[in-house]
Design a protein around this nucleic acid. Structure first.
Length: 431
RNA sequence: UCCUCGGUAGCUCAAUUGGUAGAGCGGCCGGCUGUUAACCGGCUGGUUGUAGGUUCAAGUCCUGCCCGAGGAGCCA
């Protein structure tokens, strides 16, 4: 293919002739003057075609080209205050590569159902493009930060054997006669990995067959799970706030244009720096009862509680020491108060709720053995996990960060479905 | 799974107390050298989700079903 320029680099081509390859985003027909808004994945530029400047064939192409047709335009790059973006192409040739007919998504309003059925095309819209660029930035930042802070990336399996008492929230698949389940978490495997590598993380898709139908849930979502040997609850929180602050600040810096497209008010995001406020579950319950949001000690927080709590803070807030009964079986209990455990959730600002759940894991063979027995979990499936406490057990902590929830928060988008290219939702697996 | 709301033109919606189904956008034709979701004139558009029921008459009222949205629970 012949060399061509990209719109994001267009400033370097001012005064030169450039060839752009892309798609027609929109067009204004002024008769002898055609304004073509061309996008190429890296940006959008206005290409101006004047009848006297081009061949009759090229002008005809400009006049008849339709929304989302693929095209190649050649022209001189200029700065122009009248142009959206500040740069403009004075065209001397237009070639239609493929003429799109009746592209369904117009620049006007559409409903959710209509757009979701056309997700493969919706991805081209400026807003979706901006959100997914932010997603890619957050992913890059996650890896950058962890890789440069001593974490080893060791991904964990997606096909896993039955390992809990309740398989109702697991997707089931055939494993040559055995039953395999799609992973809900890589954490247990991470715990094995840290005993070899110290600090590790896995980052990949996880699956929950929950019949959740809310703006915060996907059946398939991406979760980052760092795990650290020799880290207690406090160190866990420090890593979380450092990481989250880095993600937010990096995105503010590198994706300012996209956040502007999304009309994101970044006032609160700019304040996201360590340390984050830390409150215990007990004081969270107190705050909530003062607010008149009913909660009984021992109950886990629902979405309304998380929103009400977060409203008291201008930064994400840690809630730690949850009741042991409402957290996972492997959480370390507080030696002073066994009714609470060394767990911590991070609640985002502005009503986005929980973006991280984690804490210190139990290092005790005896306690975990009891837990497995008490909950009626098949012991055989956990023998390897118990081994980790038999051969050099150490205090350790880790957490899971929901990528899509984090991206939704940073972008300020209402629904998580827009933060992943092809969301898997209750009752929706197409396209 | 439960609660609430909805389904009318390609899209977004309107349609009075049950009385001839409408607008904007899109598309098509024409006009314009500075448009920013352009504007101006014309044309094009319908098995009102589905199956029954009530009625002289149903988009409108009743019942079942299907589909969607918002919320709850659960969680990242």
């Amino acid at each position: 293919m012949a060399e061509h320029a990209y719109i994001e680099d267009i400033a370097a081509h001012v005064g030169e002739e450039a060839t752009l390859k892309g798609w027609l985003y929109n067009k204004t027909d002024k008769g002898r003057l055609q304004f073509l808004l061309v996008r190429d994945g890296t940006g959008v530029i206005q290409a101006v075609v004047f009848e006297d400047d081009v061949s009759p064939e090229a002008f005809e192409a400009a006049k008849t080209v339709t929304q989302e047709s693929s095209l190649i335009v050649t022209g001189t790059v200029r700065t122009d205050k009248r142009a959206p973006g500040g740069y403009e192409l004075t065209v001397n040739d237009v070639e239609i590569v493929q003429l799109a007919e009746d592209y369904p998504i117009t620049p006007k309003e559409h409903g959710v159902d209509f757009l979701m059925d056309r997700r493969h095309l919706w991805l081209r819209s400026p807003r979706q493009h901006a959100i997914l660029r932010v997603r890619a930035e957050v992913v890059r930042a996650i890896r950058d930060w962890l890789d440069s802070h001593g974490f080893v990336n060791l991904d964990t399996p997606i096909l896993t054997p039955s390992s809990c008492e309740d398989t109702s929230t697991l997707f089931e698949t055939d494993y040559f006669g055995d039953t395999a389940y799609l992973a809900q978490s890589g954490q247990l495997y991470n715990e094995a990995n840290i005993m070899s590598f110290g600090k590790v993380y896995c980052f990949g898709p996880t699956f929950r067959a929950e019949k959740s139908k809310t703006r915060r849930h996907l059946l398939e979502f991406w979760m980052l799970e760092p795990e650290m040997a020799w880290a207690d609850l406090d160190e866990c929180m420090k890593v979380e706030e450092e990481l989250v602050s880095y993600l937010v600040q990096t995105t503010l810096e590198n994706r300012a244009q996209e956040l502007k497209t999304l009309q994101r008010d970044t006032t609160l995001l700019e304040k996201v720096e360590p340390p984050f406020p830390r409150i215990t579950y007990d004081s969270a319950v107190e705050i909530l009862s003062r607010d008149g949001v009913s909660i009984e000690w021992g109950d886990d927080f629902g979405a309304p509680h998380e929103v009400a709590l977060a409203e008291h803070f201008e930064k994400p807030v840690f809630v730690h020491h949850y009741p042991t009964q409402c957290k996972a079986f492997y959480m370390e209990i507080d030696p002073e108060r066994p009714e609470v455990c060394l767990s911590v959730d991070l609640l985002a600002t502005e009503g986005y709720g929980e973006i991280i759940g984690g804490g210190q894991r139990s290092a005790s063979y005896e306690y975990l053995e009891q837990q497995v027995e008490r909950l009626g979990i098949p012991r055989q499936a956990y023998e390897w996990y118990l081994d980790l406490r038999r051969y050099g057990s150490v205090p350790h902590s880790g957490f899971g960060l929901g990528l899509e929830r984090t991206v939704a928060w940073i972008c300020g988008v209402k629904h998580i479905r827009e933060t992943i290219p092809f969301p898997r939702l209750l009752g929706r697996m197409y396209p």
